[in-house]
């Protein structure tokens, strides 16, 4: 076991736990934001740099601080480690920088983006970004690509988190899409635009933190905040059949995996459940989905709040104003 202190709150966790996991155990307002890390995907994380934290004390044995900010999703805790997340000005500054970098080439087409309302980049910008835009150059754009007839890739919106690539690698057999080109020309692509012909390909939509991969069957049907999520299940021979149905009135507009408070799906679901079962009669309804931190549905965050001890929200406002 290791004792780690994050923003003044101490928790004891198993050896091998990452700083991020430990922070999540404390609570949502202490946990660093993540854009690429996904606990269900092996080797995810480390790319986006939004979860950078300051390690002000390395461990009980070696109390020296770490010289650079570290990616909390990829750094293990040590006994006696002290970590500063939002209580570190360095972290807040670097994070605001990361938000700016991520938005640099992002189209900000939220008004017509199906992800709006449940977009992690929106949340991140709102909570950690600056209010001013300093870039004036033309943004990088790509043409939209259909990946099969159910998924659309809107590369212009992509932040290259690699989650979809890792999903394709780890839960589908025979990956056909990946990252091509280099640097800021890099893009998610099938290169020759092959359909992802696989029973689980639809999960790339759920793992995408932005509106780069969207469900064509839900395209422009409704703003997500006008839909109501219900938990439901069915007997499925491919997946667990446990899903969220998104209703508008009596119509099921879309089906997704069930997401936890970090916006991650609990279980990956198959394409049949996702795309082909859109009648209430296909499902056994369990009831309204519980509160979801990453959705406008949970704007009031009914979950119990644990505030960082060394830091209050007013401090953020003071810096960013």
């Amino acid at each position: 076991m290791a004792k780690v202190t994050i923003d003044g709150i101490t928790i004891e966790v198993a050896d091998g736990t990452t700083i991020l996991q430990a922070a999540r155990m404390i609570g949502p307002d202490v946990a660093p934001p993540t854009m690429c890390y996904y606990s269900k995907l092996k080797t995810s994380g480390g790319y986006c740099r939004t979860c950078l934290v300051e390690v002000s004390k390395g461990s009980e044995k070696d109390p020296r601080p770490m010289p650079k900010l570290v990616a909390s999703c990829r750094t293990g805790v040590m006994d006696g480690m002290e970590v500063k997340n939002t209580s570190s000005e360095k972290v807040r500054d670097a994070r605001a920088g990361v938000v700016e970098f991520l938005l640099l080439n992002h189209p900000l087409d939220c008004p017509v983006c199906d992800q709006a309302g449940e977009c992690h980049l929106q949340d991140l910008s709102y909570e950690h970004g600056n209010y001013k835009t300093r870039t004036e150059f033309e943004r990088r754009t790509f043409d939209k690509i259909d990946i099969g007839n159910k998924i659309q890739l809107h590369m212009t919106r992509c932040i290259l988190c690699y989650r979809c690539v890792k999903t394709a690698e780890q839960i589908t057999d025979g990956r056909v899409h990946g990252v091509i080109n280099r640097g800021d020309h890099a893009e998610i692509s099938t290169y020759v635009e092959q359909a992802i012909d696989n029973d689980f390909s639809g999960n790339v939509i759920d793992v995408c933190p932005v509106g780069a991969l969207t469900d064509k069957t839900f395209r422009f049907k409704s703003r997500v905040w006008f839909t109501k999520p219900m938990y439901a299940h069915r007997n499925c021979d491919k997946c667990s059949g446990k899903v969220s149905l998104w209703y508008k009135g009596d119509d099921v507009l879309r089906v997704t995996g069930r997401k936890d408070q970090w916006g991650e799906v609990e279980e990956f679901i198959c394409n049949t459940c996702r795309f082909d079962k859109k009648s209430t009669s296909d499902w056994v309804i369990e009831g309204p989905a519980p509160i979801n931190r990453h959705s406008v549905i949970s704007a009031n965050k009914y979950a119990k709040l644990v505030k960082p001890k060394e830091f209050t929200l007013n401090d953020i406002k003071a810096i960013t104003d």
């Binding site: 025979g174 990956r175 056909v176 899409h177 990946g178 990252v179 091509i180 280099r182 290169y191 020759v192």
Partner: peptide, 14 residues
């Protein structure tokens, strides 16, 4: 190899 593995590499190197 999968074709995508080749495209990924071919498009990375100048």
């Amino acid at each position: 190899l999968q074709p995508i593995e080749v495209y990924e590499v071919a498009s990375f190197y100048s």
